[in-house]
Simulated scan of single mutants.
Amino acid sequence: MSYDGMPATYHIDLPDRMDQQSDIRNQYDADIRHIVGTFNRYLSKKYPASHYQNLDWRVIKAMIWVESGHKRSAWRFRPMQIGNIGDPGLQAVLHLKKTRLKNGKVHIQSEGAELIIPPEYTANLTWKNKEKIRHDPQLNIQAGVAYLLMRHAKFGYRTVVDFDEKDYKITVKFGDNINKIAAANGTTVNILKQFNPQINIQHLQAGLLLKYKKAKIRKTVLGWYSMNFLSITKKYNAEGDRRYMKKLKYAYTEINRQ
């Protein structure tokens, strides 16, 4: 993930005015490095075909400088500001998206957080811990990084083959169709087509022998939107500070000068 720098002469009024004498501004460096490294290792290994590019930990540090600043009380417990009242970010990370259906009922579904969060953090980032995430800086950073990456992920659906490496066979019965066979045998239409290219699946005849593997269609990460200062501003800051991108650029440049 690439980030455009900004001339060091550009000055913008950040929450703490970038006081270079304040060591507390570097308080979370070790935490940020560890958390970002954990996400990078997990996502690059889990989705090798998605072309994941490692997140730069200094971007998260710059975001924290802009979001909180060491002179604000939020610095001590909510450095990434995720979990503020009215902020949808934490709700998304905690796997909850509420949609009101036409019949008046509320449907709750995941926004894909479970596909982004490393196993090391799944026990931390739960609805049960929502208040703790608002007051524990390390958990707040974990949630903030998760939300940032969620908003840059391209979610989609893909056929995933089970790892048992076993081939199965099924004999077509009278009245069967390809969808019925797939559902009844724990596989997918695509897998049946792939393993039986010589058969016209639209006109299956009773007695035909079909080969297949166990498989499911699952939600996954197909790719990633390019991450830059503009995308972070739109996807993380949303309609907040209009000068967010300029502040972020300046903070990132100052961090690189240290």
Rank of each mutant, 00 (worst) to 15 (best):
residue 198 Q to Y: 09
residue 198 Q to M: 11
residue 199 I to G: 08
residue 204 L to H: 02
residue 195 F to R: 15
residue 209 L to W: 00
residue 208 L to H: 09
residue 187 T to P: 04
residue 210 L to M: 06
residue 191 I to F: 00
residue 192 L to C: 06
residue 218 R to M: 12
residue 214 K to G: 06
residue 187 T to W: 00
residue 201 I to H: 14
residue 187 T to I: 07
residue 208 L to K: 12
residue 208 L to Q: 15
residue 196 N to W: 03
residue 195 F to I: 05
residue 210 L to V: 04
residue 207 G to W: 10
residue 217 I to Q: 14
residue 194 Q to A: 13
residue 195 F to S: 10
residue 209 L to M: 12
residue 195 F to N: 14
residue 210 L to T: 07
residue 216 K to V: 09
residue 197 P to M: 05
residue 216 K to Q: 13
residue 208 L to F: 10
residue 195 F to D: 12
residue 209 L to H: 10
residue 191 I to S: 00
residue 189 V to E: 08
residue 209 L to E: 14
residue 213 K to Y: 11
residue 216 K to S: 11
residue 187 T to L: 07
residue 193 K to I: 06
residue 214 K to W: 03
residue 205 Q to W: 01
residue 215 A to I: 01
residue 205 Q to I: 05
residue 199 I to H: 03
residue 195 F to A: 12
residue 194 Q to D: 08
residue 195 F to Y: 14
residue 195 F to W: 11
residue 205 Q to L: 08
residue 197 P to T: 07
residue 188 T to R: 03
residue 187 T to A: 06
residue 198 Q to H: 13
residue 201 I to Y: 10
residue 205 Q to V: 08
residue 198 Q to W: 10
residue 203 H to Y: 07
residue 208 L to S: 12
residue 203 H to Q: 13
residue 206 A to D: 07
residue 189 V to G: 00
residue 199 I to F: 00
residue 202 Q to S: 11
residue 196 N to G: 06
residue 188 T to Y: 04
residue 215 A to Y: 04
residue 213 K to T: 01
residue 218 R to N: 11
residue 206 A to S: 15
residue 204 L to C: 05
residue 189 V to P: 03
residue 191 I to V: 11
residue 195 F to V: 02
residue 198 Q to G: 08
residue 213 K to Q: 15
residue 216 K to F: 01
residue 216 K to M: 04
residue 210 L to Y: 07
residue 217 I to R: 14
residue 210 L to F: 04
residue 207 G to F: 11
residue 202 Q to D: 13
residue 216 K to E: 14
residue 200 N to C: 02
residue 205 Q to N: 12
residue 194 Q to K: 15
residue 202 Q to V: 01
residue 195 F to M: 15
residue 187 T to D: 09
residue 208 L to G: 00
residue 206 A to I: 02
residue 198 Q to I: 09
residue 192 L to N: 04
residue 206 A to F: 01
residue 209 L to N: 13
residue 188 T to G: 04
residue 187 T to K: 03
residue 213 K to W: 09
